[in-house]
Design a binder for these strands. Structure first.
Length: 899
RNA sequence: GGGAGCAUAGCUCAGUUGGUUCAGAGCAUCUGCCUUACAAGCAGAGGGUCCGCGGUUCGAGCCCGUGUGCUCCCACCA
């Protein structure tokens, strides 16, 4: 056994340990080892499952810092669960991301191969797309592995895998049969670059500087005024528009019926400029009298409001744009010109003809396609839709009833609720090739049937229309990516394609979904809907929203700004553990995270700290002896204290983890290791130079270190596993070591530890302030009623303060420094001359503070209402504070007078 | 236009049932140390009107109102 372990050489006794930790070797070694041991694998068994499905990254490129944060959080949760007795299953995968990927592939083909998509057949194009997917999918997977993610690779799922494809089609057909999917003409947002419909959620609105053009429309049948062309008179009306290129699609102009200025236009017609088309003047309350000129042109084909008014007044629709954003035949002029070019030319022509009254700078909101970043065009088109209202109801209930918990806080509940209550039908057809092709078959007359396969379609068609041998043609369009991703938590376990199988029954509902808050509508809400529809059960119990990763100036990370670091480079420079540490330590759940490489450096330093603690223990191991000497007493104290401190922190971390407060948990562990373990505990048990450590103490220290490594492991898996094995020869691995029971911490011993720490700090501080070098030997004169309580700790005290003598209740003969610890006075005697002025200064400052403090406490205690209303323990605490302050004041005053 | 959130040290942020030994952490700054695990380190220190104003309370960083300044989400104003 362990053949492969020999090759990787855990710890060679003769091997010199390097000065610093070198991550690269350890990371590669351990990831391979864990894989070989099948630790990442999960199969249903008797244990309780803990399941996470990865939000599948788009195969458009490589992972960015947002993914890094997400995957790290998931790995922490999954490793913690695995070490806590759960059957942990983390399913990896990727998303075909139809529009985004197709755009990338089209672009790549043009740039690298000079191929135009239009010259390819559907099959040829898909071949290229799958090649692309293979390449980038694998890059993504290798990044996930480099980061240390313990995903079950055997379950890797792609949203276009065969079974997944079938599941999507099956759901489409099912929803169609239920009447929840329909085909209809609607005003949708059109992406002229990708030449496809967009769902409302795929449109991003941005404020941009635009222009408002004031265009004159002649009133039909009136005399043209010769005089002032800028005057709004009976001959013209003036209409403000941002999009003069759409005037050819005008079918009416509209004013508010209460607007006195336009009352005389009742029943009149106006002439659309340039094309001289006569259109009626209509009246509707919708028009705002105070905006622009108070009169609006109606262009039903290119504006959602106009479309609605058009419906109301039964106006025709004149679509003047082609699908690629150029002007269509219907525009009559500038046919074939791009919409923005046409705009410029039309403005020029209007200006030439004196029909442009003025241009105004104007801030407006324009909708941009999230995928191609071009201005989306409102357009009438026939698309497929999902009726959302009925699906939304159960999904809404899951969250409002608390069955699904959103973390970090409730602030997303309101947004979620609002969206679901006002949900609009979902446009799911996309005019693309990369995706699941819509399973609808048409005959030549446009009649269609919906079925999972072509044969089935024919059968249904023949039955329905009582014919035979009719050529049917499948819908060219594919489905929105989210129409496949919304099945993710089910279909990764084949829950749709093979319902009721062992895996879906065991793993569903999953435990936690970790994702960005920006896709709460796209994805989170819809997964809940799909889960309720097809499993009658929520897809996950907890949702953990991570914030957005920004650069340290608070800017969004983007390629154009060049502020998005390369994950593999970061791992190369700092190590995966340090990257994980850096991104977690500064990331309270849900808050945006300002990414700064200095936190990665902190992680790297932490690696080194752990490494050196291990080296120290290895050094001790060599010469550890069994002995029964004086010092054992203080070592017992140190061990007792740290054991309790460990238990205290372990239960605190347990609570933090259960509340998903991961960065706080990490901070707590960090401080426990660095401060309590390294700075205090190891120093306390450190043998004098040249001496050996007690065997039992050594073993205890190692077992504490084991516990610390285990606590830290979910956050920093590689170095903890590495050190775990370097510390001792082991048969087991830390990754799968199960957490033990947490004992209660004894608060008394913790307080004694604090007292010792305070005494050491106070003495060091006093030495420092009085220019006594740390190395210089001192004598301590402790004034106390409980000299015996110093027995277990006095050795530590003298070691840590460099005191070679400790006297109790004696007063030093010569001048010395005085400091107060708790209620006790300590004199520090050294050979360095004491500057009494410095002493006096410090004491007087303390005295002043204490007196002020005493006054506030006394005031409170003499307040009847406080004594009557406050809780007894609060009052008791105040009394104690008062007594303590008085004792201290007394001590200081005595000393001051003796100086 | 509608809704939500944030404002605490120079910077990034903790502070979850309101109790002045809770005003904290990490960076950064300053002082002293190359002390045999660690200079990627050790020992210390300084630094804040808890955004302004008002209220509730014996007591407010915390609760309520309001003003200011940021941020995000939703929405069809030409």
């Amino acid at each position: 056994m362990f053949v492969h372990l020999q090759a990787i050489n855990f710890f060679d006794k003769n091997m010199e340990l390097s000065k610093n930790y070198i991550p690269a070797d350890a990371e590669e070694k351990w990831y391979q080892h864990w894989m070989k041991k099948n630790y990442f694998k999960s199969e249903p068994d008797d244990r309780t499952p803990f399941t996470i499905v990865i939000p599948p990254p788009n195969v458009t490129g490589v992972l960015h810092m947002g993914h890094t944060l997400n995957e790290t959080v998931q790995d922490i949760l999954i490793r913690k669960a695995r070490m806590s007795g759960f059957n942990a299953c983390w399913v990896p995968g990727s998303d075909h991301a139809s529009i985004a990927t197709e755009a990338k592939v089209v672009d790549m083909l043009k740039r690298e191969k000079g191929i135009d998509k239009n010259n390819l057949s559907r099959e040829e194009f898909l071949k290229y797309a799958f090649e692309w997917k293979e390449k980038y999918g694998n890059i993504i997977y290798s990044q996930i592995a480099k980061l240390g993610c313990s995903v079950d690779w055997d379950r890797t799922t792609f949203t276009m895998d065969d079974h997944y494809y079938k599941a999507v089609i099956k759901v489409f057909v099912d929803l169609y049969k239920k009447g929840l999917i329909y085909r209809g003409a609607r005003m949708i947002n059109w992406d002229p670059a990708a030449q496809t419909a967009l769902s409302d959620e795929e449109v991003e609105y941005k404020d941009v500087m635009g222009k408002l053009y004031y265009v004159k429309y002649a009133v039909s049948g009136r005399q043209k005024a010769e005089s002032n062309p800028e005057k709004i008179d009976d001959d013209y009306i003036v209409i403000a528009t941002q999009r003069p290129e759409t005037i050819m699609g005008d079918v009416a102009v509209c004013a508010n019926p209460n607007d006195e200025r336009y009352k005389n236009l009742q029943g009149k017609k106006v002439i659309v400029p340039l094309i001289n088309k006569e259109v009626p003047v209509i009246f509707d309350e919708y028009v705002d009298k105070d905006f622009g000129t108070g009169i609006l042109k109606i262009t039903p084909a290119h504006d959602i409001n106009d479309f609605n008014i058009g419906l109301k007044f039964n106006l025709p629709v004149v679509d003047t744009l082609n699908e690629d954003g150029t002007l269509s035949e219907a525009a009559q002029i500038f046919v074939g010109e791009d919409r923005f070019v046409a705009r410029k030319k039309i403005v020029d022509e209007l200006r030439e003809k004196g029909l442009l009254l003025k241009e105004e700078e104007y801030v407006t909101r324009l909708g941009y396609s999230q995928r191609t970043n071009v201005v989306a065009e409102p357009k009438i088109s026939t698309q497929w839709f999902v009726k959302m209202k009925d699906l939304a109801q159960p999904a809404l209930k899951q969250v409002t009833s608390g069955k699904i918990q959103i973390h970090p806080n409730e602030k997303f509940n309101a947004t979620y609720k609002y969206w679901l209550e006002n949900v609009k039908d979902w446009c799911i057809s996309r005019q693309l090739w990369w995706g699941q092709q819509i399973p609808a078959w048409y005959d030549e007359e446009g009649r269609f049937v919906v079925a999972e396969t072509e044969n089935e379609a024919k059968e249904i068609y023949n039955k329905q229309y009582a014919t035979n041998n009719v050529q049917l043609k499948q819908d060219e369009d594919v489905l929105d990516t989210w129409f496949s991703s919304w099945l993710w938590p089910m279909e990764v376990f084949y829950g749709i394609s093979n319902p009721g199988n062992k895996d879906i029954n065991y793993y569903y509902p999953t435990s936690v979904l970790v994702t960005g808050q920006d896709i709460i509508f796209f994805w989170v809400a819809r997964m809940i809907m799909a889960g309720m529809e097809y499993m009658h059960e929520k897809p996950f119990t907890d949702v953990y929203f991570t914030g957005m990763v920004r650069d340290k100036m608070g800017r969004k990370m983007s390629k154009s700004l060049g502020n998005s670091p390369d994950l593999l480079l970061l791992i190369h420079e700092y190590g995966a553990d340090a990257v994980r540490f850096g991104i977690m330590i500064s990331s309270p759940a849900g808050n945006d995270l300002l990414f700064d490489e200095s936190s990665l450096e902190q992680g790297k330093f932490f690696n080194n700290k752990l490494w050196n603690a291990m080296k120290l223990l290895k050094m001790w191991e060599e010469g550890a002896i069994t002995r029964d000497q004086l010092s054992v007493r203080s070592e017992e104290f140190a061990i007792n204290w740290f054991e309790n401190r460990l238990n205290e922190v372990r239960s605190a971390v347990e609570i933090l983890m259960s509340q998903f407060r991961l960065s706080e948990a990490l901070k707590t562990i960090y401080s426990l290791i660095w401060d309590d373990f390294c700075s205090w505990f190891l120093e306390w048990i450190k043998p004098e130079y040249g001496k050996s450590i007690d065997q039992k103490t050594y073993e205890k220290a190692v077992s504490f270190f084991d516990d610390l490594l285990q606590m830290l492991h979910p956050f920093m898996p590689f170095i903890t596993e590495e050190i775990y094995h370097l510390l001792k020869d082991r048969k087991d691995d830390l990754m799968v070591k199960q957490f033990g029971r947490i004992e209660n911490a004894n608060s008394e011993i913790l307080m004694e530890g604090n007292k010792l720490k305070n005494a050491i700090s106070a003495i060091r501080d006093a030495k420092n302030k009085n220019n006594v070098k740390p190395k210089e030997k001192i004598s301590l004169f402790i004034q106390t009623n409980e000299a015996s309580s110093y027995e277990p700790i006095k050795e530590i005290l003298s070691k840590q303060t460099n005191a070679d003598h400790i006297f109790f209740n004696q007063v030093p003969a010569s001048s010395s420094i005085m400091t107060v610890v708790g209620n006790e006075k300590i004199y520090i005697k050294s050979d360095t001359a004491i500057d009494t002025a410095v002493q006096r200064d410090k004491l007087e400052k303390d005295l002043q503070y204490l007196k002020g403090f005493l006054i506030t406490v006394e005031k409170k205690l003499s307040n009847d209402r406080f004594v009557q209303n406050a809780k007894p323990e609060v009052i008791e605490l105040e009394r104690k504070k008062k007594a303590d302050a008085e004792t201290k004041i007394n001590l200081i005053e005595q000393t001051l007078s003796s100086l």
